[in-house]
Structures are given as structure tokens and as C-alpha cells.
């Protein structure tokens, strides 16, 4: 993994600090071209990995990078699935099973429907989960996706339920079908990592909040610092700026002091902010 990865919250009206800012961003980025321009800016600053949610709007971004392979031959996507609101809203509207049914792939109908129908009927979670993963991965066909993340709402929901087998199903399918490294986003890394190790998922890639403010680091910043010190997982730090609550240098100094943090993901909308953050991380990583 590269040291610096580019995130996508800013493109989808997600801002943990301000709804006004989130709405302004949603307006600016409702056109895919605006997203691509920012990704090109990030690329020009040397950020070549885009960690992105499998939001349906990502399809046009994928189309762009497929069409421009000569210009961006080394561009990397880290898909993060699923886009949780899509499922939550469908569950409220269609009920649990209706939601699952609505996301089973529509193309290649006979095969997928059979696979889906049989899986549903047999309560075969593995069959269903792999179908849903395939449906989410479809838009990335032909692109470089060496790491695939399970999104934090899904990870933490399964972790809470004790639905451990799902992690194994996800990890195995991502490895076998996509020859990719399975990875997990979580807000509860100190609880998740030992659980994954018990399942035989060793040294997993974990993307989690790590910031000086202790924002959304559950159960505590101390537990996180212990986990980091143990070096039992490959860490990607997210929310390092705590959505802008921290001054960049102070925030990045905190994250960069930990040798065991492999990568840092951040999202920004302006070339200036992208350049500033990237340069700061590079500088603090060298020192």
C-alpha cells in the first residue's frame, strides 16, 4: 500500500462537522467531472490510490479511469463495500429480505437468480454474500483493485452480532475471486483485530479512525495506542484530521509518530489542501 491514499467522503456529502459544508460539497460534486478533476489533482500530487465506497455514482469514475488507462496506467482503486445507506434505506422500505433481494444482480439473470434464489432458500449466507460482493465489484471490472475493504458499518454490525463467519467468507472470496487482499474498516479496531486473528485472518489490513482528538476511536484512544504498539495489523489511519477539527500539522504529527501505521487516507477538495496534506505527510514520514 502507498503511504498516502485518497478518500471519498467529501464527494458524497459526508462531513462529520458541518451539514452546511456537506451540502455545499454534495452540490459541487453532483457532477462526476468535478470528482474526476479532484482525483486528477491528487494524482498530480502523487496520490495514486483512491479508496472509494461502492456508491452507484462511482460507476462513472470507474468508466473514466478505464477509458484513460494510458494517462493513468498505475491508478489503483480500493473499493469499500457496501454503501451502507443504500441497504439501510432499502431495509426500512422493503424489509430485511426485500432489501437483500433488491441488491442481487439483475444481469445474467438466470444464473444469478438461481444462485440467489437457492442461497436465499437454503439460508446460505456464503452464497448470498458472495453474490452481493460480486454485484458491488462489478463496476471495477478491468481496473486495478489489489485491496478490497468491508465498510465499517458492515464490519462493526457483524462484529457486534458475533457473525464472525462473514469475515471469513468475505476474506476468502476477495482473495480467490479478485486475487485481492481483504481489508476491514472499523470504528472498533481493538475489538476486531483479535477476532480476525482467531479466524485465521492474520496481519489484516485495518482502516480505522486514528486522530489526536480521540474522535470515534472506540473504546478509547489508549486502547488504540496499545493496538498500534502491538503491530498485529497493517493500519490505514482515517479521520486523521477529525473532519477538520485539528490543525493539519498537529494532527499529522500525532499519526506520523507511530511507525506501525502503514498508510494514511484523507479526503480534500482543493488542490491546495491536497498538496499541503500530502507534503506534510511526506515530510513527517521522512523525519
Amino acid at each position: 500500500m502507498d503511504r498516502v491514499l485518497f478518500g471519498d467522503n467529501q464527494f458524497f456529502g459526508v462531513n462529520h462537522m458541518s451539514e452546511e459544508k456537506a451540502r455545499a460539497q454534495a452540490m459541487r460534486f453532483q457532477n462526476g467531472k468535478a470528482i474526476i478533476e479532484v482525483l486528477e489533482d491528487a494524482y498530480a500530487e502523487g496520490i495514486k490510490t483512491f479508496m472509494c465506497t461502492t456508491h452507484e455514482r462511482m460507476a462513472e469514475i470507474c468508466d473514466f479511469f478505464r477509458a484513460n488507462k494510458d494517462k493513468y496506467p498505475d491508478y489503483i482503486f480500493y473499493p469499500c463495500m457496501p454503501y451502507a445507506h443504500k441497504y439501510a434505506n432499502a431495509a426500512a422500505e422493503l424489509g430485511m429480505l426485500g432489501a437483500v433481494r433488491s441488491f442481487l444482480p439483475e444481469e445474467n439473470k438466470l444464473g444469478a437468480l438461481l444462485r440467489g434464489g437457492i442461497s436465499l432458500a437454503r439460508q446460505d449466507v456464503e452464497g448470498l454474500a458472495t453474490l452481493l460482493i460480486d454485484a458491488e465489484m462489478k463496476m471495477f471490472a478491468g481496473l486495478n483493485t489489489p485491496v478490497v475493504f468491508l465498510q465499517n458499518v458492515a464490519t462493526d454490525f457483524l462484529l457486534g452480532l458475533g457473525f464472525d463467519e462473514a469475515f471469513k467468507i468475505f476474506a476468502d472470496h476477495v482473495r480467490v475471486r479478485y486475487l485481492a487482499e481483504p481489508a476491514f474498516m472499523t470504528m472498533n479496531a481493538p475489538m476486531l483485530v483479535p477476532r480476525l486473528q482467531k479466524l485465521g485472518i492474520d496481519n489484516p489490513i485495518i482502516c480505522t479512525n486514528i486522530n489526536k482528538a480521540g474522535f470515534r476511536m472506540c473504546p478509547s484512544i489508549q486502547a488504540y495506542e496499545e493496538l498500534i504498539a502491538q503491530g498485529r495489523c497493517r493500519l490505514v489511519a482515517m479521520s486523521v484530521l477529525a473532519s477538520g477539527a485539528l490543525a493539519p500539522r498537529q494532527a499529522l504529527e500525532y499519526v506520523c509518530q507511530f511507525q506501525n501505521i502503514e498508510s494514511i487516507v484523507f479526503g480534500a477538495s482543493s488542490r491546495r489542501n491536497i498538496a499541503q496534506t500530502k507534503q506534510l505527510i511526506d515530510e513527517l514520514t521522512r523525519s
Binding site: M191, F215, C218
Partner: peptide, 20 residues
């Protein structure tokens, strides 16, 4: 004042601190 400074971590997080 922002939620990032007002909110304390919970023991376990799934979908918003308030639910936990």
C-alpha cells in the same frame, strides 16, 4: 462547537455514538 470536540468515544460503535 463541533461534534468532533463534544462527542466522547463509546465502548462500541456501529452507526452513531448516540445509539451506543
Amino acid at each position: 462547537r463541533y461534534t468532533t470536540e463534544l462527542t466522547r468515544p463509546v465502548w462500541f460503535y456501529v452507526r452513531g455514538e448516540e445509539y451506543s
